[in-house]
């Protein structure tokens, strides 16, 4: 076995180790909060290779909108689906798509892309 081959094996194994650590390891997720203007709270989620932040916390009792700012131009993230709310919005029609979230009671609304590959949640408390 040549040195090049041995090196390849070592690099390959290191790469696999890195992938496992990077994707499956515990990493802290960013949590976003809303801003309240004129009795309406707004939170913005940037859509680019995922949702950032993927968790948004809203205050109970104040009418709320979550704005999805579409910055990704692949088909993957073109729709956002709130299963419990029956919302399925096409994000590609306009730059920012607003989704009204009911805040009359505390709870968690999960959302995902059209293919259910990306996930996020809106927490009302």
């Amino acid at each position: 076995m040549t040195i090049a081959k041995i090196l390849t094996i070592i690099i390959g194994l290191l790469l696999i180790g890195f992938i496992i650590w990077w994707f499956f390891g515990k990493h802290k997720e960013a949590v976003g909060n809303s801003t309240v203007v004129n009795d309406l709270q707004n939170a913005t989620i940037v859509v680019k290779g995922g949702y950032s932040p993927s968790t948004v916390v809203l205050k109970k009792g104040i009418p709320a909108e979550v704005n999805f700012d579409m910055q990704d131009s692949t088909a993957c993230l073109s729709h956002v689906v709130f299963e419990q709310l029956g919302v399925n919005e096409d994000l590609t029609k306009q730059k920012i798509t607003s989704v009204k979230i009911p805040t009359d009671k505390a709870g968690t609304y999960n959302f995902a892309c059209g293919m259910d590959m990306f996930h996020g949640k809106v927490i009302v408390k």
């Binding site: 680019k48 290779g49 995922g50 692949t74």
Partner: peptide
């Protein structure tokens, strides 16, 4: 899109 996802420890 992939780079943005990678930074967030996700892949698709």
């Amino acid at each position: 899109s992939a780079i943005a996802a990678f930074k967030k420890h996700s892949a698709n």
